[in-house]
Each structure stands twice: as structure tokens, then as C-alpha cells.
């Protein structure tokens, strides 16, 4: 059973620029994943408004009945979030690794246009390696 169900990357205006599914039941179609991504973007923003204290930077972890959603927002407003099994550990670390891969293989790619969907082969390859490594590490424990 996969520990990670899917990965989303959304740009600073809430548009989905990358989505990868690692085996969740009942695949979502493209329209649904775009809607879910922009919905998450707004929920993230609203959660900051409802904070009882100053300095809130949005939802980091959402615990649902059947999955956990870990979200990481970069300083530029790009959001990375993974959907994984409840109770999966070390997802913050994985998100940082994915962010690093994004800066290395997407942002440094001269053919990549900012805020546009990611189509970079090297990013795909390294991403699947990172996820695989994470899965192996989970199996080892």
C-alpha cells in the first residue's frame, strides 16, 4: 500500500501547475484536480484570517478521516501539498526535498515560464526517485 497518495503543486494565484497521482482509488479527472487545487488555495488563505494570534501562515496539516494532507508554502507563495496515509511521518522533510528539486530542475530550466504548468523531464525523474526513496525508508522502519 502506498504511503503517499498524490502530490500537488499550485502557483501563487491558486492555479494547479503540477499533479501526480500515486495510486488513490477513483482517479480524479483534470477538472476536479484543478478545482480542488484552487479550493485549497482559498481555504489556506481563509485559515490565516481566522487566526486568534498574529503571524499565521496557513494550514500546514489537515487530518481527515482517511488521509493526512501536508502543505508547505514557499516564500514566493508556491504551495506544495501531499496527500498521504493518516499518521505518516517525515512529510515536512519530503516536501522540502520536493521544493529543492523544484528550484533545481524547474526554476533553473531556461525553457520554463514562471507560474505555468511544469513539464520538465528531469524534474519528473528526480521526483519519482525521491518518492521511491521515501517509500523504501518507510518500509525499512
Amino acid at each position: 500500500m502506498a504511503a503517499i497518495y498524490s502530490l500537488y503543486i499550485i502557483n501563487k494565484s491558486g492555479g494547479l501547475i503540477f499533479h501526480k497521482d500515486y495510486g488513490s482509488a477513483g482517479r480524479m479527472d483534470t477538472n476536479d484536480s484543478l478545482r480542488v487545487a484552487s479550493l485549497w488555495h482559498s481555504m489556506h488563505a481563509i485559515s490565516q484570517q481566522l487566526s486568534p494570534t498574529v503571524g499565521c501562515s496557513g494550514i500546514e496539516l489537515l487530518e481527515a478521516d482517511t488521509f493526512d494532507l501536508h502543505c508547505f508554502q514557499s516564500l514566493t507563495g508556491t504551495k506544495f501539498f501531499v496527500v498521504c496515509e493518516p499518521g505518516t511521518q517525515h512529510m515536512e522533510g519530503l516536501l522540502k526535498v520536493i521544493y529543492e528539486l523544484y528550484t533545481d530542475y524547474v526554476l533553473k530550466n531556461p525553457f520554463y515560464e514562471m507560474e505555468m504548468p511544469i513539464r520538465c523531464e528531469l524534474f519528473d525523474i528526480n521526483l519519482s526517485q525521491a518518492i521511491q526513496k521515501d517509500r523504501v525508508a518507510l518500509l525499512g522502519r
Binding site: 485559515s47 486568534p52 494570534t53 498574529v54 503571524g55 499565521c56 500546514e60 496539516l61 487530518e63 481527515a64
Partner: peptide, 13 residues
């Protein structure tokens, strides 16, 4: 599928 909590850096709901 519902949810039971979420966490930000300043609060947990």
C-alpha cells in the same frame, strides 16, 4: 470523508 483537525503555525482547530 470528513476531517477532525487541522493545524497552522499559530493554532490548531
Amino acid at each position: 470523508c470528513s476531517f477532525h483537525s487541522f493545524r497552522t503555525n499559530t493554532y490548531k482547530l
